[in-house]
Simulated scan of single mutants.
Amino acid sequence: MEFRLSPEQREMVATVRAVTQERIKPRALKFLDGTFPWENLKDLAEIGITGMAIPEEYGGLGLSVLDTALVVEEVAKGCYTTAMALMPQLGVQTRILAQYAPEELKRRIFDGVIRGEYVLAVCMTEPHAGTDVANIKTNTEIKGDRAVINGTKTLISKVDEAQLFVVFTRVDKIAGREGIGCVLVDRDTPGMIRTGRFHTMGGEHLFELTFENVEVPLENLVIKGDGLKKLMSAFNTQRCLNPSISLGLAEGAFEEAVKYCRDRTAFNRPIGKFQGMRWKLAEMYRDIEIGRSMLYRAAASANPYPDPHLAALAKMYCNEMAIRVTSEAIQVHGGYGFTDEFPVSRYFRGARYGTLGGGTTETLKELVGKKIINDFPHDGFLGMGNF
């Protein structure tokens, strides 16, 4: 069996790589303080990237999960912060709105997203409910033609920049998974208060938001019931884009390590001439190629969302692989690798996020383990190992 990107995909990746390497990567260092990379987002919008996940009838490109994964991977090679800034335009919040939002909401917001002017924040995590989304406490009460939100969300990205917030909430205090819904909130809505701010080792800021009697029109209630099932289906897209960043960071670090092994000399010869360094590169390359195969297979399974277990496996592997590869790239660089001036330290900082967001490694192992116990065939692997 052979898997190849189409000529159109190769052309798209080449275009994104040129923009990333020529414009985005040279600016990467200045975003370590939490500054939002608006200029990079505009550069990507100019070539249509911010509209990739939006259906064509709303002016977007309507491209596949695999296409978006390829782009996120390429951007992450140049700048982790920019890849994270791009995620809302390509990830779960945009795809949920595209599938479930009322027509008038789509018409109102998608044009700004396509132009790179609108950023969408997703609000799921709460102080006492991260992975356990079914137990969120934030509640939306329906009062006539209004929806009133109360509760607290934490570790929310893009709060200072987002124009729209996709908030997952309980509806009318209905208990359990069935009570989860989703509401869209404009940034200037009264009662939405920033109550905490955290600077991450990757460079971006995360925030805590409190909703105190926040009122929105009833048409902003995007999902009213059975929202957890819909959320988790869409979230499998995130579980392909998150490891796309991990893969891109690993590739970027590997490219820097290869350059350094060719250019740096010790004992009168390039350090790449030493077996120890060549073996490091061989192992890094092996791990990247395994991760690429797993991720592309998971992303290609989307219809419209990726297979949950393939996505979980890809995320588990790529997240952990990126930590190993970026750490080894620092080791290749020696003391220089520990400085901000060399990109490998930034790649390592960004890689550490992967196992935490979009479902922790431990949660995904449990998901896959349950699948194995319940469904693995008694006669063993069949074909490609699907079951």
Score class of each variant (00 low, 15 high):
165 F>M: 12
150 N>S: 14
198 F>P: 03
225 G>W: 09
193 I>G: 05
222 V>I: 08
186 D>P: 15
229 K>N: 05
225 G>R: 15
219 E>R: 02
207 F>V: 01
142 I>Q: 07
198 F>C: 12
195 T>A: 15
211 F>W: 10
160 D>K: 06
188 D>A: 06
149 I>D: 00
143 K>H: 00
218 L>P: 03
215 E>W: 09
154 T>W: 11
185 V>Q: 09
152 T>F: 00
161 E>P: 03
158 K>E: 14
221 L>D: 02
189 T>P: 04
146 R>M: 08
223 I>T: 02
175 A>I: 08
175 A>W: 09
166 V>W: 07
178 E>N: 03
227 G>A: 01
184 L>M: 06
209 L>Y: 01
209 L>E: 02
149 I>V: 13
180 I>F: 03
210 T>I: 12
162 A>D: 06
160 D>C: 02
176 G>N: 04
149 I>A: 03
174 I>R: 11
191 G>T: 00
155 L>S: 08
204 E>M: 14
199 H>N: 06
216 V>R: 13
168 F>E: 00
155 L>C: 10
146 R>N: 02
220 N>E: 08
200 T>C: 02
187 R>K: 13
215 E>R: 09
152 T>L: 13
186 D>Y: 13
192 M>R: 15
216 V>L: 06
152 T>V: 14
144 G>F: 06
179 G>Y: 14
154 T>V: 04
152 T>P: 01
146 R>E: 04
215 E>A: 07
212 E>D: 11
211 F>Q: 10
147 A>I: 13
147 A>E: 05
220 N>Q: 04
213 N>W: 11
216 V>I: 14
209 L>R: 08
148 V>Q: 10
215 E>S: 07
209 L>S: 12
182 C>H: 01
214 V>L: 05
225 G>L: 13
209 L>M: 15
184 L>D: 06
167 V>P: 05
185 V>D: 01
157 S>M: 12
213 N>Q: 12
227 G>I: 07
204 E>Q: 14
180 I>V: 10
196 G>C: 10
220 N>W: 08
219 E>P: 10
194 R>P: 11
209 L>G: 10
223 I>K: 05
143 K>Y: 12
182 C>N: 10
184 L>P: 07
179 G>R: 03
217 P>G: 05
166 V>H: 01
154 T>R: 07
154 T>Q: 04
181 G>E: 10
218 L>V: 06
212 E>W: 14
218 L>A: 01
171 V>R: 04
150 N>R: 15
149 I>N: 01
157 S>Q: 08
166 V>I: 15
158 K>H: 15
153 K>F: 11
150 N>A: 15
146 R>L: 04
209 L>H: 11
213 N>Y: 00
179 G>S: 02
172 D>P: 13
172 D>C: 08
190 P>Y: 00
223 I>V: 05
228 L>R: 10
184 L>F: 09
